[in-house]
Simulated scan of single mutants.
Amino acid sequence: MQKKIIVTCAVTGAGDTARKSPHVPVTPEQIAQSAIDAAKAGATIAHIHVRDPKTGGISHDPALFQEVVERVRESETDVILNLTSGGGGDWIPSENNPSLGGPGTDMQTPEERHEPIGKLLPELCTLDCGSMNFGDQLYISTTDWLRRQARLIQQSGVKPELECFDTGHLRFANQLIDEGLIDGDPMFQFCLGIPWGANADAETMIYMRNQLPKNAHWSAFGIGRMQLPMAIQSMLLGGHIRVGLEDNLYLDKGMLATNAQLVDRAITIMAGLGAQPMTPEEARKHLGLKNPHRKALI
């Protein structure tokens, strides 16, 4: 177990959660403030999606990402921003013609997924490393598309967080590394418990950890009630942790959480085991973040 742990807070996500909890941030102002609050509670990284301010639903609008980034930076709160680039992959076949996407389908090209990253140049961004049955829909991220997207991220100087929702995703992430599309020491995120991906249990986490390159950094999270158990399991196995309202809405049974409360709860448990959260500056050195544009955004 490491004594210094990177704590990521995934502040809002893109799921249908805004109507389930008043604490899920929706507008750019709310998302930025939630990221700031999480950082003040001890989070090292804030993982950012944006939402349609009117509906609370999915949005990929670069202008919304820009407003969030600017609000966080103008607050002079030191937190590493990790912008999603995994949107625009939802496919729901039409009942009348399954070769066409039905209601709820939301697809983007690799270039469209990369647009906020290329424009804003955060220190980190996600790269979802494969397709899968995601609940009742299909998430599509083909290997050729992933190569294109990885190349765009590489050219931008942003470090990708390689998100692996199943073991095949981990295999392909390692392939991207072998092909020279990932620079420096790679950073992995194990996304556990999403139907129908990898299980949220210690056995699965250990297997995935054991498939990593020797120079890899890694983190893991579970969803719902498995959020904190998987976070602490990750820490005990030598990884880092992620909490936040993207993955879980509750602090305790029947008690809705805020992002800051989830970060605080995780750090309290960590402290009892002799670990502390890394500061953003410590994490920049640990992960080898070298994006020259970070200071231009502060």
Rank of each mutant, 00 (worst) to 15 (best):
257 A>P: 13
162 L>N: 10
207 Y>P: 00
62 P>Q: 13
293 H>M: 13
161 E>W: 07
55 T>W: 01
28 P>T: 07
182 I>F: 05
73 R>H: 14
125 C>L: 02
228 L>T: 14
159 K>D: 06
43 A>I: 03
35 A>Y: 12
208 M>E: 01
154 Q>R: 03
245 L>K: 02
65 F>I: 08
259 N>H: 10
18 A>D: 11
108 Q>Y: 08
217 H>R: 08
78 D>H: 09
216 A>Q: 00
4 K>Y: 15
36 I>Q: 02
115 E>A: 07
152 L>M: 15
31 I>A: 14
132 M>C: 15
105 T>R: 10
109 T>G: 01
206 I>N: 08
272 G>S: 10
100 L>M: 07
53 P>R: 03
89 G>E: 05
138 L>Y: 03
136 D>Q: 08
182 I>P: 00
13 G>L: 13
87 G>V: 02
20 K>H: 00
78 D>R: 04
215 N>G: 03
20 K>G: 00
283 A>H: 00
80 I>C: 07
256 L>E: 15
147 R>H: 03
283 A>T: 12
186 P>V: 13
140 I>Y: 09
180 G>T: 00
1 M>P: 07
18 A>W: 11
202 A>Q: 15
140 I>E: 00
227 Q>V: 07
282 E>L: 12
167 T>S: 10
234 S>R: 04
213 P>W: 02
257 A>N: 15
167 T>M: 14
193 G>R: 02
64 L>H: 11
118 G>E: 12
161 E>V: 11
23 H>S: 09
227 Q>D: 07
131 S>N: 01
267 I>D: 01
2 Q>F: 07
187 M>L: 13
196 W>R: 07
52 D>Y: 05
30 Q>K: 12
137 Q>A: 08
275 A>T: 03
76 E>W: 09
116 P>E: 13
224 G>D: 14
45 I>F: 08
65 F>S: 04
231 A>M: 13
96 N>D: 12
137 Q>K: 08
230 M>F: 07
233 Q>L: 08
182 I>C: 05
41 A>I: 13
208 M>Y: 00
103 P>R: 06
159 K>H: 05
95 E>N: 14
276 Q>Y: 14
37 D>N: 14
187 M>V: 09
185 D>R: 15
221 F>C: 03
144 D>Q: 06
154 Q>W: 03
117 I>K: 05
